[in-house]
Amino acid sequence: MPAPSAEPGTPRPRPVTVVLTKAGRTKIRYPAEPVRDDGTRITVRAPWAAPEARDFGFVRFEPGDVLTEHYWRDQWYAVKEVRAGDGGLKGWYCDITRPAVLVDGVLTVEDLDLDLWVSADGSSVLRLDEDEFAASGLAGRDPGAAGAATAALDELERLARTQGPSGLKDLLT
C-alpha cells in the first residue's frame, strides 16, 4: 500500500516516532515513515527495529525486514504486515493494544500483552502471550480494558480463521 504520490515541491510528511509502552514503561521507540492517516487509522512503515534477529519459533524477524504497521484510534489492536528484505510476505503480527494516540509526530500505543500471529499462507494462526496477559492483572485493575482486549483478540482470530489472510487484508484496505 504505497503512499499517495506528492506533487512536485510538496514537502514529504515528517517521520513519526512510534512509542510502544507496556505497564507504564516505554518498551521500544523507533522512527517510522508515515504512509497514510485517514483520521481513524494511521499507517506507518519501518524496518525491524532491533539490531539483531529474533526467532519466535513460528517466525524469525531480522534486520532487513520491513513492517507496514496499521494503528487505529478507535480499535484495541494494531496489525503489522511483516515482509522480508526481499519483499516476500512473512505474515501479520497483531498486537492487542489500547487505541493509538498521535500527538506532535509521536504515535503512542499501549501494549496489552495479547498477540496474534497469522502466517502469509494462513496455515498458522496463533494466539500468543495469554499467560502474560493473565499475569498482568489488567482484568482486576481495569475490567473494561481487559474485556476490550480479549474481544479484539477474538475478533482478529475469527477473521483469520474464517476468511484466512484475506480477512486481515480487507481490514487493512
Rank of each mutant, 00 (worst) to 15 (best):
A139T: 13
D113S: 11
A100V: 04
F58L: 15
E52G: 13
V82D: 01
P11V: 09
P34W: 03
D37N: 11
A32F: 00
P47C: 07
S119L: 11
E62V: 09
V79L: 08
L153D: 00
T150Y: 00
W92P: 01
G87P: 07
G167D: 10
P165H: 07
W48N: 03
P13D: 09
G91L: 04
A78V: 10
I28E: 11
R36Q: 11
G9H: 05
G144W: 04
R36A: 14
K80H: 15
P34E: 06
I42G: 01
G88D: 14
D37W: 04
W72F: 13
D170M: 15
G122F: 06
V118Q: 01
R161K: 13
A100T: 04
F61M: 13
R98P: 02
R14E: 13
G64P: 10
W92C: 01
E62M: 09
R141L: 13
D142L: 06
V125Y: 07
G24Q: 03
R41C: 15
D104E: 15
P31T: 06
K169T: 15
L156D: 00
C94W: 01
L128G: 07
S123P: 02
E81N: 10
D38N: 15
K27C: 03
R98H: 07
L67E: 03
A149Y: 00
A32I: 03
T26W: 02
A145K: 04
D95A: 11
A135P: 08
G9Q: 08
L128Q: 11
A50C: 09
T173Y: 15
G105N: 06
V109E: 01
G144T: 08
E155A: 15
W76M: 02
T97V: 10
E33Y: 05
A134D: 15
E62F: 04
E157I: 09
T108R: 12
E33P: 02
T97L: 02
H70F: 07
D55G: 08
L114E: 00
R12I: 08
L138Q: 02
K90W: 11
W48T: 03
K90V: 10
E52S: 14
R36E: 12
P165E: 08
R161H: 07
G39K: 07
V59I: 14
T68C: 07
P31E: 12
A151M: 04
E155F: 09
T97H: 01
A135V: 07
L126G: 06
R98Y: 04
L89C: 13
D129E: 13
K90R: 13
G167K: 06
A135Q: 12
F133M: 05
T10S: 11
A78Y: 01
E33L: 08
Y71M: 04
P11D: 08
T40P: 03
G147Y: 01
T10Y: 07
P8C: 07
T162W: 05
P8R: 12
L126D: 06
A160K: 00
G57L: 10
R127N: 08
D74L: 09
A53I: 13
I96Q: 01
L102H: 05
H70T: 08
L114S: 01
E155V: 07
T173F: 14
W72V: 09
A23Q: 13
I96R: 00
V79Q: 00
W48A: 03
Y30C: 00
L114M: 09
A23H: 13
L156W: 03
A46R: 11
R60I: 15
S136D: 11
